[in-house]
Nucleic acid binder design. Structure first.
Lengths: 224, 224
DNA sequence: ATAAATAATAATATAGGAAATTTATGAACT
DNA sequence: AGTTCATAAATTTCCTATATTATTATTTAT
């Protein structure tokens, strides 16, 4: 989800771990993040931990209130819909740019990413839930490959942060959307190779909104 | 630019100060941010300062490299164009939502914000450059008021972060765009009261792109 | 002049503790 | 019983001091 830099510090590593733990639900929504226990869990000092939590606060994965400390960002259906709406807006826009400018290297990248995703989807459909994180990673890579030719660093950055928030909601749901999502990915690949941005946008919209409804229908109990 | 919370800590205050100093150009693009000098300047400890710089890094106003420390995010024409493109995308989208849902309170808010902006624009045109920051603040408030009825917290948040990056580029330019921008603001007000989102979007697009070209033509020397 | 070795500088990370604030506990009161 | 208030405990915020590590500048040797 986040690129691994060459020279990363202890803080960078722990940052990625905590961020992933939020996205993949190992740190639950609205969970209080007490410094001392967390410090132990991630093997860093309080100082370093606070730096990390400050970053995550700006990222929107953690909320900080007054001197009450930090907690994991809460979730809600309305927020999910907002996130999905933004993802559609940004990703469709990027798709258009990318399809217009994408060259052969870009196409190759898309095909490669699709292949990986496809294999993992088949494994998921066969019931191998152990590859859940790998599969979601491949999903991320495929969508990123599609928009990779958009030519705007800022757009990619913004899309990444929105995508990860959407992804978090997906990971909070128990079941696998499966065949429908897989078929949509296939359609996206076809549209990409045909450089048909309008078709891709239509599919993507359904793809994302379908994910939202699936997510709300199959959410973990106790969340609202 | 950032709302002042009731219970803010020393860190929050210094964060706002540093952020504003970057946006308003008192901390120059690509300037190295040495911890010790900065610590003195903002009257905080290194620990707190690092927390702040970490937040600003996630915000995109500061870049951190390996263990080489922090520096103010660089600027470039291409980045400005990317930022502007995103602002158009997000703000037009928000405008549409806002115009469709905006009630009488929303209209009143827009009128009020326009009035303040209008007065400050006249002062600027009369040569009172001392109100520069107030004027830009009013500009911010007006644009925020226009989209304030969009009903999406996430969209508002994202727009805010993009707007501030655009604003930074505006503050790096020496001259005032004046009458043209003022006329566009007037058109936006009219479109808002008529709830004509399409017209507003057209004006906004010109408004932003006009700002970009003005900014590039009148940038401070020594920047690229 | 180039490359390797060394010294100086600065950033990262930890520990420990003081001040301030929130949260928990229990007694007194309506 | 439920609320209010005061006190105690826990926690966060913030600082100083210090060790470690990486980068940058300087010197030395080839």
């Amino acid at each position: 989800m986040i690129e691994v830099a060459k020279h990363d510090t202890i803080g960078d590593t722990a940052y990625r771990n905590i961020r992933n733990d939020i996205i993949f639900g190992r740190l639950k929504p609205s969970e209080r993040l007490r410094l001392e226990p967390l410090r132990r869990r991630y093997n860093v000092s309080v100082t370093t931990l606070r730096e990390i939590l400050n970053r995550l606060t700006s990222d929107g994965f953690v909320v900080a209130e007054g001197q009450k400390g930090f907690e994991v960002a809460p979730v809600s259906d309305s927020d999910l819909r907002e996130v999905a709406d933004l993802r559609i807006l940004l990703e469709c826009h990027a798709l258009e740019r990318s399809f217009a400018q994408g060259d052969l290297d870009w196409e190759a990248g898309v095909v490669a990413a699709y292949h990986k995703l496809h294999v993992l989807e088949k494994q998921m459909m066969a019931g191998e839930t152990s590859v859940r994180e790998n599969w979601k990673n491949a999903d991320w890579q495929f969508h990123r490959a599609l928009i990779g030719g958009c030519g705007s660093r800022r757009l990619m950055e913004l899309h990444g942060s929105v995508f990860d928030k959407y992804l978090r909601y997906q990971m909070l749901t128990l079941t696998f959307r499966g065949e429908k999502a897989a078929a949509e990915h296939r359609s996206l690949l076809d549209a990409a190779l045909a450089h048909d941005a309008a078709a891709a946008a239509r599919v993507l919209r359904d793809h994302i909104l379908g994910g939202v409804e699936h997510s709300i229908a199959n959410r973990e109990p106790g969340k609202k």
